[in-house]
């Protein structure tokens, strides 16, 4: 009997020992994660809550008081012609830049992948705009597209075509900005597609050839396109989100003009919030902007779940 108690005692004691080491691990983990957690709350969670709250107020910078106005900002927003124009312009810009840069990115990636000569040169050439300061390159584009002294119009004149006032007329400005946008993002998409293409096992192409896929078009539809599925969904999301976030070129080149023809979402928010200092109103716009992003991310998750499951 005496022996048995002597044996059972350490067994009972050992339980709390496990707990102590687990508690220790949890405590260490907390300490390691705490700085990140505090900063996430400080710089992401709190500001998001603040922006949603501010959206329901008439807060303006410089005034010390503000009051809650319910959905008044949102009501004003949808009656606001500038904002509606801005949403519309952003949609058009996205509808041009995203598909064009995806298709061109894919096309260039396919061409480079199937070519043996000058691969790294072409990759560098198409990628260079991604590594360049956009504000600076926008300035170069402004010169290239200058209505009278710009090389583009001089070239057009040379072959007898009238050059439009690319960035200066309301009819062309959005398309010109889109063109710059495409120029800037094709390289990025190309790199992602190239990575996707390299990840396709060579054996699949061999199998496709043996199975009777004679032409490269057959093999493209049997192997390449389906295997690029995940990359494509991914590239699409990034391209759309980046297009919606267009700001630098507009701020640098047009300031939303002429006549609000290039007014885009972030530029409008910037103007209202940081130039006119109507923080409450701009916050409501920001909430709309955030909602657009959330919807698009959600759509991507759904698409990935449904389609790209091997």
């Amino acid at each position: 009997m005496a022996d048995m108690t002597a044996i059972s005692l350490p067994v009972e004691k050992s339980r709390p020992i496990v707990n102590v080491s687990e508690r220790h691990e949890a405590r260490v983990a907390w300490m390691l994660a705490a700085p990140a957690m505090i900063l996430i709350i400080l710089f992401i969670v709190a500001p998001v809550i603040a922006v949603i709250t501010l959206g329901f107020t008439d807060f303006e910078l410089g005034y010390s008081t503000f009051k809650f106005v319910g959905f008044e900002n949102y009501a004003e927003l949808f009656g606001d012609r500038t904002f509606r124009q801005s949403l519309w312009n952003t949609a058009i810009y996205t509808a041009i830049v995203a598909p064009a840069s995806i298709l061109l990115g894919l096309g260039v990636a396919l061409l480079i992948e199937s070519e043996t000569v000058g691969r790294s040169f072409f990759r560098t050439a198409y990628f260079l705009p991604v590594a360049s300061l956009l504000v600076a390159m926008a300035t170069v584009w402004q010169y290239l597209l200058h209505p009278t002294i710009g090389p583009v119009n001089n070239l057009l004149n040379l072959i007898g075509l009238p050059g439009p006032n690319w960035l200066g007329s309301a009819g062309t400005v959005l398309y010109s900005l889109s063109m710059i946008g495409v120029w800037q993002t094709v390289g990025f998409n190309m790199i992602l597609f190239l990575a996707g293409l390299t990840a396709i096992p060579r054996d699949l192409y061999s199998a496709a050839e043996i199975d009777g896929a004679k032409s490269s078009i057959d093999r493209f539809f049997l192997v390449t396109l389906p295997m690029l599925g995940p990359t494509t969904v991914f590239v699409t999301t990034i391209s759309v989100i980046n297009a919606v976030k267009v700001f630098e070129t507009v701020k640098t080149l047009t300031e939303g003009g002429p006549n609000k023809a290039s007014e885009v979402l972030l530029f409008t928010i910037y103007q209202e919030g940081f130039v006119y200092l109507r923080v409450g109103y701009a916050s409501a716009m920001t909430v709309v902007f955030l909602a657009v992003l959330v919807v698009m991310m959600f759509a991507q998750y759904r698409l990935v779940d449904r389609k790209v499951h091997y």
């Binding site: 992401i44 500001p47 922006v51 976030k245 700001f247 928010i269 923080v279 920001t286 955030l290 992003l293």
Partner: peptide, 9 residues
Amino acid sequence: VPIHATSLP
């Protein structure tokens, strides 16, 4: 959440 969404507060 990009910086554009939190910049006002």
